[in-house]
Design a protein around this nucleic acid. Structure first.
Length: 862
RNA sequence: GCCCGAGUGGCGGAACUGGUAUACGCGCACGACUUAAAAUCGUGUCUCGUAAGGGAUGUGGGUUCGAUUCCCACCUCGGGCACCA
C-alpha cells in the first residue's frame, strides 16, 4: 500500500459511488432492486435543505449533513431502506437583491449557486440520493406549491386582509420582517415605516390547538416543544361582558341635560337600550377570580367600539388624537417606550362591573393589544403589574381581592399576581380559592370559559419578484378566481427590473402583459395577483416531494407517501423552531385533513444541531472575515478528516468554535488507521507464504503473550462497537470518535492484528470516514462496498469484564483501589477492602458502617 | 421582565441512572528514532506541598456515607419571547 493520499482516494471512491449509485433509493414496487439487497424497514432521514447563497458553503453548513449522514450510513448497514435526500430552497432575497444590483436573472444566479453547492457537498461524500434532488424555484416544483395554496384558498384558509408591511422610504421598497429587524432597513440603514397594505394571510390560527396538542405525539427535544408551545401561546380564561352606560346629557344635547341631571341623579347614566344600540364590552381575562377588584376597563385604541363611542364622549378631540398617535407609533416605538404606560379616559362612558354592578371608568390605552383576546381588558391593579402601573399613574383605585396567607388586608403597596384566597368579593366568594373562584365567578356573571392563542395568522404575501406567484385572478365580475389546475404553474414572467415599484407593489405589477388576463370563469377582463409567496412556502412541503420528485399528476403519489412518511428523523436548526418547523406542521395537517397525506404529523423525531462558530467563539461571518471554506480544508486535510473533525469537535447539539489548529488531531487519527492497514497488508503477505515456518520458530511464551494481547484487544473492539453503535443513535458523535481513537491506538501497539477484527473497526468508522474505509476495505480483499456490508454486532460476553477495579473510600475519601471479580459477593469485597494496606492506614479502630455499591465503590465509615 | 440552555485544565471537551472528576483531542515540555529535520512513538502536563496529605467542576448554602450530577438562592454567558391580560 502506498502513502495515504486523500485527494486521489476520495475522488476515486466518490466516482465509484456515483457509478454504482449505491445511495440511490427506490421505493418498493418500482421493480428496481435495492442496492443493499436486504430490504428492511424504510428509514427516512432529513436535513433542512440549504438556501444556495452566492458565498458557497462554509464549514458550519455541513455539520448537520454529516451528522445525519453518519446515521443514514449506519441505518443502511443495518439493512434499512434509507431515503436521505437533498434539494435547494432557492427562492429568496439575497438572490433577488443580487439581481437588482446586477440585472442578472435570479434563475441564472440560482443555477450558478446550486452548482457550486452541489460540488461542495459531493466533495464531502455525503450519501445523498442525488436522483431525487429538488429545487423550489423549478416551475415543475412550484406548480405544486401553487396548487397547495389554492387548496387553502378553496377551503377559506387563505384570505386577504389589511396588514402592515415594512417600508423603507429611502429605498422605496417593501421589506420582509427579516430585512427590517429593529426597524432599520438592512440595505440602507434608514428607519423603516409601517405601511398598511392588503396582504394574503394563511389561517394557521385555525390549527393552533392541534399544533399545540399534537406535540404530544412526536419525539422532539423538550426545548423545541416548549418553544413552540410558548409561540402558540395557548391560555385558558374567561370572556366577561361589561355593560356600558353613556351619560344621558350626551344623548340629548343642549339645555335639557342639566335638568335631567337634577331629576335623575344616579340614574343619569342611561343604558342606551334601544335594541340596535345597546353597548357591551367583552373582555378576556385569565383571572376571573379577581373580577371584584376590577376598577376600570381598557380598550385597545384600535378596538372597533371606540369609533362607535366617539360621538358620545366628552373629550372626543383628546381621544382622537391619542388614537392617531397610537396608530402612527411603529411597533418598535411602542416597545421602545418600555413600561411607561399612556392612555385616555373615555369621559362620559362608564362600564358596569357585572360582579358588583359598580360603575367603573373606561380607558383606551395602547398597552392593550388589539389582536389578542377581545382587544379589551378589565383592569385589576392590585393583581396585575401593568394595571398597577397604569392605576398609579392615573390615580385609579386599587382594590385588593386576593390574599395570600402572608398578605394582610388593606390597600396594597404593590401588586400581587399570584393565586390565593378571595377577599372583598362578596359573601358568596370570600374565602374561596382562586382556581374554584375563576369558574364560579365566570358562571355567576354569565361569562364563558374560552381558550385564546398568541399565535397570529401568517402574512403570506410578499411584494417581490423571486417567489412563487400567487395563482389567483381578479375578475371584475367574478371577484377572486383561482387559476385552474391545468393552467398551473403560473410561471414568473421575464422582467426588465427586479426592483419593487414606488407604490410598494411587486415588480410583477408593472408587466401589464402578464397582469392583464382573462377570467378563467367568465372569460372577461381580469388581472393577476402580483404578490408572490414567502420563501417559507416551498419549504413547507418539500419533504413530501422527495418521495416522488418527478410526478406531474400530483405533488406526490399516495402509495409512495404511505411507504415513506412520516420522516423518521429530521435534524435542523433551533432557529427554525417557530417558523419553518411550525409552518410545515401546519401545511401537513391541512393536507392530512384533505386526505392527501397519510399521517397527522410530518416528522416523527426532531433533533437539532449547534452552530459552528468562528475561531474564538464569535459568529462566523463575511464581515468579520473569519469564514472558513470547506474547499480549503478538504484540499489540505481531506474530506474524511473534515468529517471526523466536525463530529469530534464538540457535542452535536451545541455550538462549538472552529479551530483549524485542532483539525490535525483528526488527521492523525485517520493516518493511524491507514498505518494499521499497511501493517495488516504486510502481515497478510507474510502469512500467505511463510506462516507455517513462523509458527515453528515462535517460542511458546511469545505466542501466549501475543494471544493475550490480542484477546484484550478483541474485548476493547467489542466494547467500542457497542459504544459507537449506541453513541450514533444518540448523536454523541464526539464520544464515539474518542472511543475509536482509543481503539486505534491500542490496535497499533499489537503485533499480530486479526484482520477480521480490524475490518469490524473499519465498518464502525465507515459512517464517519467513508472514503478511507472504503478504500482499505477493498484493499483487504473485499469485493462489495463497505457501506453495504452488515453493521457489526458486539459480543456481550466480550463486552463484560470479568475483573474490575473499584475504588475504596474511607469516610468518603478515596484511599485505595482493589481488584474484584465482576459481581463478586459483598462479603468477599469487604474482606479485600478491609485488608488493603492503604485502607488500614486510614481506618480508626471501630468501623461504623460499610457501604458497598455493587461493582462500583465501597465506602467504609469509621 | 418571563421561558429555555450552559458555566469543568492554557484551549475544544469527557464523566452511564448520585459512586475513583479532568477520558479523547489540541497546545506545551522532555525523551527515543534521525547526520539533521519532518513524521512517528514514549513520558509528563488542574493546583498547593519534598512527602504524607490538602484544595478545586461559576458563587454561597442544603440533602447524602458520597454531589459536576439532586434541591434553594445568587452571579455570568448564549438562545427565544417581549405589555398576550
Amino acid at each position: 500500500m502506498k502513502e495515504y493520499d486523500h485527494k486521489k482516494i476520495e475522488l476515486r471512491v466518490q466516482k465509484e459511488w456515483e457509478k454504482s449509485g449505491i445511495y440511490n433509493t427506490t421505493s418498493p414496487g418500482s421493480g428496481a432492486k435495492l442496492a443493499t439487497g436486504r430490504l428492511g424497514r424504510k428509514f427516512y432521514a432529513l436535513i433542512e435543505f440549504p438556501y444556495p447563497s452566492g458565498d458557497g458553503l462554509h464549514v458550519g453548513h455541513p455539520r448537520p449533513y454529516i451528522g445525519m449522514d453518519v446515521i443514514s450510513r449506519k441505518k443502511r448497514m443495518e439493512g434499512l431502506n434509507v431515503l436521505y435526500p437533498i434539494g435547494w430552497d432557492a427562492f429568496g432575497l439575497p438572490t433577488e437583491n443580487y439581481a437588482i444590483k446586477t440585472g442578472i436573472h435570479p434563475a441564472i444566479v440560482t443555477k450558478k449557486n446550486t452548482d457550486n453547492f452541489r460540488r461542495q457537498i459531493k466533495m464531502l461524500g455525503i450519501s445523498f440520493d442525488w436522483t431525487r434532488e429538488i429545487n423550489t424555484t423549478d416551475p415543475k416544483y412550484y406548480k405544486w406549491t401553487q396548487w397547495i395554496f389554492l387548496q387553502f384558498f378553496k377551503k377559506g384558509l387563505a384570505y386577504k386582509a389589511k396588514s402592515y408591511i415594512n417600508w423603507c422610504p429611502s429605498c422605496k421598497i417593501g421589506l420582509a420582517n427579516e430585512e427590517a429587524s429593529g426597524g432599520i432597513c438592512e440595505r440602507c440603514g434608514s428607519k423603516t415605516e409601517k405601511r398598511e397594505k392588503e396582504q394574503w394571510m394563511l389561517a394557521i390560527t385555525k390549527y393552533a390547538d392541534r399544533l399545540d396538542k399534537d406535540l404530544d405525539l412526536v419525539d422532539y427535544p423538550e426545548r423545541v416543544k416548549i418553544q413552540q408551545r410558548n409561540w402558540i401561546g395557548k391560555s385558558e380564561g374567561s370572556e366577561i361582558v361589561f355593560k356600558i352606560k353613556i351619560a344621558k346629557q350626551m344623548l340629548f344635547h343642549g339645555s335639557h341635560s342639566n335638568l335631567n341631571m337634577v331629576n335623575e341623579p344616579n340614574i343619569a347614566y342611561a343604558e342606551k337600550s334601544t335594541a340596535s344600540q345597546s353597548f357591551k364590552i367583552k373582555v378576556f381575562t385569565t383571572r376571573a377570580d379577581t373580577l371584584f377588584g376590577a376598577t376600570y376597563v381598557v380598550l385597545a385604541p384600535e378596538h372597533p367600539l371606540v369609533t362607535k363611542f366617539l360621538g358620545q364622549v366628552k373629550n372626543k378631540k383628546e381621544v382622537e388624537e391619542y388614537i392617531k398617535k397610537a396608530k402612527k407609533k411603529s411597533e418598535i416605538e411602542r416597545t421602545a417606550d418600555e413600561k411607561e404606560k399612556t392612555g385616555v379616559e373615555l369621559k362620559g362612558i362608564k362600564a358596569i362591573n357585572p360582579a358588583n354592578d359598580e360603575e367603573v371608568p373606561v380607558f383606551i390605552a395602547d398597552y392593550v393589544l388589539p389582536d389578542y383576546g377581545t382587544g379589551a381588558i378589565m383592569a385589576v391593579p392590585a393583581h396585575d403589574e401593568r394595571d398597577f402601573a397604569f392605576a398609579k399613574k392615573y390615580n385609579l383605585p386599587i382594590r385588593q381581592v386576593i390574599t395570600d396567607a402572608d398578605l394582610l388586608e388593606g390597600e396594597p403597596k404593590d401588586f400581587y399576581d399570584g393565586e390565593g384566597i378571595l377577599i372583598h368579593s362578596s359573601k358568596q366568594f370570600d374565602y374561596m380559592g382562586s382556581e374554584e373562584a375563576r369558574k364560579k365567578i365566570t358562571e355567576f356573571v354569565g361569562g364563558k370559559i374560552v381558550t385564546k392563542f398568541k399565535l397570529r395568522d401568517w402574512v403570506f404575501s410578499r411584494q417581490r419578484y423571486w417567489g412563487e406567484p400567487i395563482p389567483l385572478v381578479n375578475c371584475e365580475k367574478c371577484g377572486l378566481v383561482p387559476v385552474p389546475d391545468k393552467d398551473l404553474p403560473i410561471k414568473l414572467p421575464e422582467v426588465k427590473s427586479y426592483k419593487p415599484t414606488d407604490t410598494g407593489e411587486s415588480p410583477l405589477a408593472s408587466i401589464s402583459k402578464w397582469v392583464n388576463t382573462k377570467c378563467p370563469k367568465c372569460g372577461g377582463k381580469a388581472k393577476r395577483e402580483t404578490d408572490t409567496m414567502p420563501n417559507w412556502a416551498g419549504s413547507s412541503w418539500y419533504y413530501l416531494r422527495y418521495t416522488d420528485p418527478k410526478n406531474n399528476k400530483i405533488f406526490a403519489d399516495k402509495k409512495k407517501l404511505k411507504y415513506w412518511t412520516p420522516i423518521d428523523w429530521y435534524n435542523g436548526g433551533m432557529e427554525h423552531t417557530t417558523l419553518h418547523l411550525l409552518y410545515s406542521r401546519f401545511w401537513h395537517k391541512f393536507l392530512y385533513d384533505l386526505k392527501l397525506v397519510p399521517t397527522v404529523e410530518p416528522y416523527q423525531k426532531r433533533t437539532s444541531h449547534g452552530m459552528i462558530l468562528g475561531e474564538g467563539g464569535v459568529k462566523m461571518s463575511k464581515s468579520l472575515g473569519n469564514v472558513v471554506n470547506p474547499d480549503d480544508i478538504v484540499k489540505t486535510y481531506g474530506a474524511d478528516t473534515l468529517r471526523v473533525y466536525e463530529m469530534f469537535m464538540g457535542p452535536f447539539e451545541e455550538a462549538v468554535a472552529w479551530s483549524t489548529e485542532s483539525i490535525i488531531g483528526s488527521r492523525r487519527f485517520i493516518e493511524k488507521v491507514w498505518r494499521i492497514a499497511e501493517k495488516i497488508a504486510k502481515q497478510q503477505l507474510f502469512h500467505g507464504s511463510h506462516s507455517n515456518l513462523n509458527v515453528v520458530h515462535e517460542p511458546n511464551i511469545a505466542y501466549a503473550e501475543k494471544s493475550s494481547a490480542s484477546q484484550s484487544l478483541k474485548k476493547l473492539l467489542h466494547k467500542t462497537i457497542k459504544k459507537v453503535s449506541e453513541d450514533i443513535e444518540n448523536m454523541r458523535f464526539n464520544t464515539a470518535i474518542s472511543a475509536m481513537m482509543i481503539l486505534a491506538t491500542e490496535m497499533e501497539k499489537v503485533e499480530n492484528i486479526d484482520a477480521e477484527d480490524y475490518k469490524k473497526f473499519l465498518q464502525i468508522l465507515a459512517p464517519f470516514a467513508p472514503h478511507i474505509t472504503e478504500n482499505i476495505w477493498y484493499d483487504l480483499g473485499e469485493k462489495k462496498s463497505i457501506h453495504l456490508s452488515a453493521w457489526p454486532k458486539w459480543d456481550e460476553d466480550l463486552v463484560k469484564d470479568q475483573e474490575i477495579k473499584i475504588a475504596v473510600q474511607v469516610n468518603g475519601r478515596v484511599r485505595s483501589e482493589i481488584l474484584i471479580q465482576m459481581d463478586e459477593i459483598e462479603d468477599e469485597v469487604k474482606k479485600k477492602a478491609l485488608t488493603d494496606e492503604n485502607v488500614l492506614k486510614h481506618l480508626n479502630k471501630d468501623i461504623k458502617r460499610v457501604i458497598y455499591v455493587k461493582n462500583r465503590v465501597i465506602n467504609i465509615l469509621s
